[in-house]
Amino acid sequence: MASKEELIEKLKEGVVEYEEDTVNEASQQWLDDGHEALEGIMEGLAAGMEIVGDLYDKQEYFVPEVLMCADALYGGLDILRPHVPEKEGGPKAQVVIGSIQGDVHDIGKNLVKMMFDVAGWDVHDLGRDVPLENFVSEQLKTDSEVVAMSAMMTTTMLGMKKVIKMIKDKNPDVAIMLGGAPVTKDVANLFGADGYAESAGNAVSEGIKMIGRLREYQKKD
């Protein structure tokens, strides 16, 4: 029988080597052996994805490899996630995510979405080329704390400014996060967003920080 450490290694390696079967088997074994699902997700799957991120930065992996790693990760997540008790899943939060109108680039957006999935958030994915109003209506419908928008073109990026205004007019308590290649921290500030992350890796922590900041701000009022 594989030890706990060995299983963690398998989960990690399976993600890094994009071996879906290995990840699925190790995830099932993890549960069968009575380990805590959340630990498997964080120390195994997410830790594997972190290595993948490093390999991508070093140009050892390119986008195809990253997408296959993501598939392997989702296989494990589907098995483990249902076994995470509600309260343990960290700050249970909701995020509305999508690529802005006119922009069909969604590879980066999907990686960001994956990080929220890993972190156990409820993710409402509107897909790509999302009409501006849909971000507003979906946020209202789901009462999500965070709206995350992706733009890959300097030009579609301008639509995000409009959405921010539309959302803030209706509901100033929503934290809005921007990302995508042409978006910078300065742009995010200028547009009136609450947060920005350069890559998928730090999107979730930025999301949590944003919610924290907003809560503090509200307490002061």
């Binding site: 109108q101 006119g102 069909v104 080329d129 030009t155 579609t156 301008l158 639509g159």
Partner: peptide, 14 residues
């Protein structure tokens, strides 16, 4: 074609 949009948007395949 985004015929109704005020912004310049190129045609896409939704």
């Amino acid at each position: 074609l985004y015929a109704d949009s005020e912004d310049i948007l190129y045609p896409t395949i939704p």
